[in-house]
């Protein structure tokens, strides 16, 4: 049975962790990594909903996040619109964009769907590179500081708290959504589209909605990232960023909200840890992905559940 306020142990644990870890941060660099992890996790929650619950793979979400970020930044720098309002306009624009492209895209299945999102993503990234008068081209452009109703975000702790709050709040909404009749429809689409269709569910309508939601979240996270780092470049919208996001979701565990967070955190931290290996960085990164996909294709969260299941079984 659904509870009115769905404050469960998982969400409390996450909040506690988020509150405690800053005490272990030694300098701003730690904060930076943490904030990027949080923003990536945010995108992954939306992407996970699309991939894990609605069964639709997107290889273009990096580009959507990047484009959303660019829209917000350009509105601010060229037209002097306040950050919060420019993010809002970016969200509206990107949802419209996502809704329009979702119609032809979501008719496609499996590989073809993945390829269409890949194609759109790469086109976006090329446009951002070429239209340098607007975007600063491949060099990127600097971004004004972030304010909410005149309150300026300057130090890392403020950003950390903003992103943490956003993540916890989003997770809370999503767990509500996934456990609701709406969420059941999504899960049924993943289970059997024909079954869903046979009880009156307009499958493509729901796929569109989820696609739009995931793009909206990517836009918010992408814009915040631009404001946080004070800089935006087409690499945010690159194919490799899109791939990174998909790998995060799958590595963490498809269809598991907390899996997406684990994946995002690990894959954001990992390259930083690997920098000490210098030339071997890419090699090790690739090897780890291969290793995980061979030995735990259902992601890290599933391994955790397996272990937990065995522990409980042995207790009986």
């Amino acid at each position: 049975m659904l509870k009115r306020y769905n404050i469960n142990r998982d969400i409390l644990t996450l909040s506690a962790i988020l509150i405690i870890i800053p005490f272990f941060f030694q300098n701003d660099f730690y904060y930076e990594i943490a904030i990027v992890s949080l923003l990536n996790a945010l995108i992954c929650i939306g992407l996970n909903m699309l991939m894990g619950y609605a069964g639709q793979v997107s290889l273009g979400h990096g580009a959507f996040a990047g484009l959303g970020g660019y829209i917000a930044v350009i509105l601010g720098s060229k037209y002097g619109i306040t950050p919060l309002f420019s993010i809002f306009i970016a969200v509206v624009t990107m949802s419209l964009f996502a809704f329009i492209i979702s119609k032809p895209i979501l008719r496609l299945k499996g590989h073809y769907l993945a390829m269409a999102t890949l194609g759109i993503g790469i086109i976006i990234s090329i446009v951002l590179n070429v239209e340098d008068e607007l975007t600063g081209g491949s060099d990127g452009m600097s971004v004004d500081s972030f304010t909410i109703f005149g309150y300026e975000f300057v130090d890392s702790l403020q950003w950390y708290m903003l992103c943490s709050f956003l993540l916890v709040f989003t997770i809370w909404m999503f767990s509500n959504l996934i456990d609701s009749p709406f969420g059941r429809v999504l899960r049924s689409i993943e289970g059997s589209e024909k079954a869903a269709n046979s009880v009156g569910i307009n499958v493509s309508h729901y796929k569109s909605i989820v696609f739009v939601i995931s793009v909206v979240i990517a836009t918010i996270a992408g814009s915040l990232y631009a404001f946080f780092s004070g800089f935006i470049s087409p690499s945010e919208a690159s194919f490799s960023h899109s791939i990174e996001l998909v790998v995060m979701v799958v590595l963490g565990g498809l269809g598991r909200i907390y899996g997406a967070i684990i994946g995002a955190v690990i894959l954001t931290i990992l390259p930083q840890l690997l920098t000490s290996f210098e030339d071997y960085q890419t090699l090790i990164y690739g090897s780890i992905i291969i290793f995980v996909m061979i030995f735990m294709p259902k992601g890290i969260a599933s391994v955790y559940e397996d272990v937990k299941g065995r522990l409980f079984a042995s207790n009986k």
């Binding site: 998909v246 790998v247 799958v250 498809l254 890419t282 990164y285 690739g286 992905i289 291969i290 996909m293």
Partner: peptide, 27 residues
């Protein structure tokens, strides 16, 4: 070797292999 053969995990496996090969070429 992969334990499961869902499309998405195989896509990621080949992507990982591509990254691996790029890294190998660098080295």
């Amino acid at each position: 070797f992969s334990k499961e053969s869902s499309q998405i995990s195989l896509i990621i496996l080949t992507l990982g292999f591509a990254i691996f090969l790029r890294g190998l070429a660098e080295v």
